[in-house]
């Protein structure tokens, strides 16, 4: 007891200070993050809207439109045969410049300069020239953080425009996500276009994603394809955020985030 008293006299203050510091930071860290992001968005505002890399963005845009046309034709065909085909798609969109990238090496994220004040809600779908790129994870008043579909925790239900073969597109942390087919023998070729599938609960169906650049037929349990995104993620300067109310479905094929 005496030795504890002596120890307390010597180290008590130090311990109290450390606990106070750790406690304050632990409780205050979300607030600090919000503060930093808001400050950051104000600071970088003057440097936004550079008219760079327009050429590549335009190329991506053409690819996206080609993809959209073929997807629409396909859908139109289906509509003629199906009796009740409905999809609730709320088209309120906000466009915002990209003001930052992932604050940690292990995540693939973007920071957009639009937030709650601009009507952006969590789980909004983010598009860029070239197609869908991710989903809003969190918002502050003037920023929103986007989890890209290339992040390792991102899984999106997708389908091929040509053959309707379905699978899950999973990020790998680099710019080429992996498509895992459901079928053991999917009708797929290199160059096939990939769009979000009707079974996706977080993304509206039929949004262009990318095209297949290689297929590994030997993968188990089903073949896997490497997909190249139409949107050049390292050069994306603007994002369009689409609010999307997902309809609850029995099949939950995809999910984003842990």
């Amino acid at each position: 007891m005496v030795s504890f008293g002596r120890w307390w006299n010597r180290h008590g203050l130090q311990l109290a200070v450390i606990l106070l510091v750790l406690g304050t930071v632990w409780l205050g860290r979300p607030a600090v993050a919000v503060l930093l992001r808001e400050l950051y968005s104000r600071l970088v505002a003057p440097w936004q809207a550079r008219p760079a890399v327009l050429e590549q963005l335009r190329d991506s845009r053409v690819l996206e439109l080609e993809q959209r046309v073929s997807e629409l034709q396909r859908q139109n065909q289906q509509l003629k045969t199906l009796v009740k085909y409905q999809q609730s798609l709320n088209l309120s969109t906000t466009s915002a410049p990209v003001i930052g990238r992932s604050p940690s090496h292990w995540w693939q994220q973007l920071l957009l300069a639009a937030g709650r004040a601009q009507g952006v809600g969590e789980s909004g779908v983010v598009l860029a020239p070239g197609g869908v790129i991710g989903r809003v994870m969190s918002t502050t008043d003037h920023t929103s953080q986007v989890l890209l579909i290339t992040d390792a925790s991102s899984k999106v239900g997708v389908t091929l425009t040509r053959s309707r073969a379905m699978g899950i597109l999973q990020g790998q942390g680099n710019d080429q996500p992996l498509l895992r087919f459901f079928d053991k023998d999917p009708n797929a070729r290199v160059g096939d276009g990939v769009v979000t599938s009707t079974f996706s609960t977080v993304f509206p169906a039929g949004l262009p994603v990318g095209r297949i650049v290689s297929i590994n037929w030997k993968a188990t349990p089903a073949p896997e394809a490497t997909v190249e995104l139409y949107a050049p993620l390292d050069q994306v300067e603007w994002g369009v955020i689409q609010t999307y109310a997902s309809t609850p479905r029995p099949e939950k094929l995809d999910q984003l985030g842990p």
Binding site: R29, L36, S102, P103, S104, G257
Partner: peptide
Amino acid sequence: QDALTNPA
């Protein structure tokens, strides 16, 4: 840094 990366 955690808070900045994944505040949600």
